[in-house]
């Protein structure tokens, strides 16, 4: 245990004596973590966006003006009986007209043409939401029965499918790009840790020689270098945590405002997953550092 604490002391001394080398190593580790966390943030945002868009996909079925309310309510009950259907809301003719006017309030031509028509040209409607966007063709097909078909004037399918595909493709590409960037920084970090330990071995060559002469065992000589690499990983993870907290404190309100109506609370996401996420990041960095250090010691440290 005594030797363990001395190994830690020697490692910390080495880090302080080679401050700038330690600084560069930690910086590259932090850059690697920044890219990894960028991937995580993008993932959260992309998933929330896709979910939100999926939630907005709906089909509106317009009925002819001679369709009675009870007929429309029957259709509503029929649709609600389908397992693919999540929700069906009934819209009266007046509500449909009000909604139409609101949607086109900035389009004077449409509003003027609406005034030309005598009375309410719109009938009752049903707004249908499915559990999955892919179920809509089935739901639409289900309305093609002789019992209901004569009363259906139109079916307006707000097809968000292409938008969803574009969004998914885009977020996938961005994620891939950031992952490649993370791997690149990981590679650079590996090289820098390797060089840091190589320089540390060079700087400490006299001390190592003397350690060996006075009877230090292998682990006493190698231990400080290994502990040093774990320290770099730990400091980088802590710095990343601080940077992320600062970023989220300032950016989260803007992000929430930007994704109006979408549940993208990054702060609570990170608070919920902080321990496993930063634990994993620290673990991976520490393993990367230990592996690189072991390799550098095998090459340059003859004990």
């Amino acid at each position: 245990m005594r030797s363990f604490f001395r190994i830690i002391r020697f490692a910390l001394q080495s880090m302080m004596r080679n401050f700038w080398l330690s600084f560069v190593t930690v910086s590259v580790f932090v850059l690697t973590l920044v890219t990894v966390n960028a991937v995580i943030v993008l993932n959260v945002l992309a998933n929330a966006s896709v979910k939100s868009v999926e939630g907005r996909v709906q089909v509106t079925v317009y009925f002819t003006s001679d369709a009675s309310e009870s007929t429309v309510k029957n259709v509503q009950s029929y649709l609600l009986g389908l397992s693919q259907v999540k929700d069906v809301s009934y819209v009266t003719a007046d509500e449909a007209l009000a909604q139409f006017k609101e949607n086109h309030q900035n389009d004077p031509v449409i509003l003027a043409s609406l005034d030309e028509v005598d009375g309410n040209p719109l009938g009752q409607a049903l707004k249908i939401r499915a559990y999955n966007a892919g179920d809509f063709p089935f739901v639409l097909q289900a309305l093609e029965t002789p019992e209901y078909k004569p009363f259906i004037k139109d079916k307006n399918y707000n097809n968000y499918e292409s938008a969803l595909r574009v969004l998914s493709d885009f977020s996938e590409k961005v994620r891939l790009g950031f992952l490649i960037l993370a791997l690149f920084f990981g590679f650079i970090a590996t090289l820098i840790v390797f060089n840091t330990i190589r320089v540390a071995i060079y700087v400490h060559r006299d001390e190592i020689g003397i350690m060996k002469l006075v009877g230090a065992n292998d682990w006493f000589v190698r231990g400080p270098f290994l502990f040093e690499s774990i320290c770099y990983a730990f400091i980088a993870t802590v710095v990343m945590g601080v940077l992320l907290s600062a970023f989220l404190t300032f950016a989260n309100p803007a992000i929430v405002a930007f994704f109006q109506g979408v549940d993208v609370d990054l702060v609570s996401y990170y608070l919920t997953n902080a321990l496993p996420m930063f634990g994993a990041q620290f673990g991976i960095l520490a393993l990367l550092g230990l592996g690189t250090t072991t390799f550098a010691m095998r090459r340059y440290l003859r004990v």
Binding site: R2, S3, R6, R17, D206, E207, G209, I210, M211, L213, V214, G215, A216, F220
Partner: peptide
């Protein structure tokens, strides 16, 4: 073969530290 950044005391103590002697 003395360590320049350690005092005389620390240089001598170093031999005992690596051997695991108590402080």
């Amino acid at each position: 073969k003395l360590l320049p950044k350690k005092t005389a005391f620390e240089n001598v103590a170093f031999a005992l530290e690596v051997a695991g002697e108590s402080t």
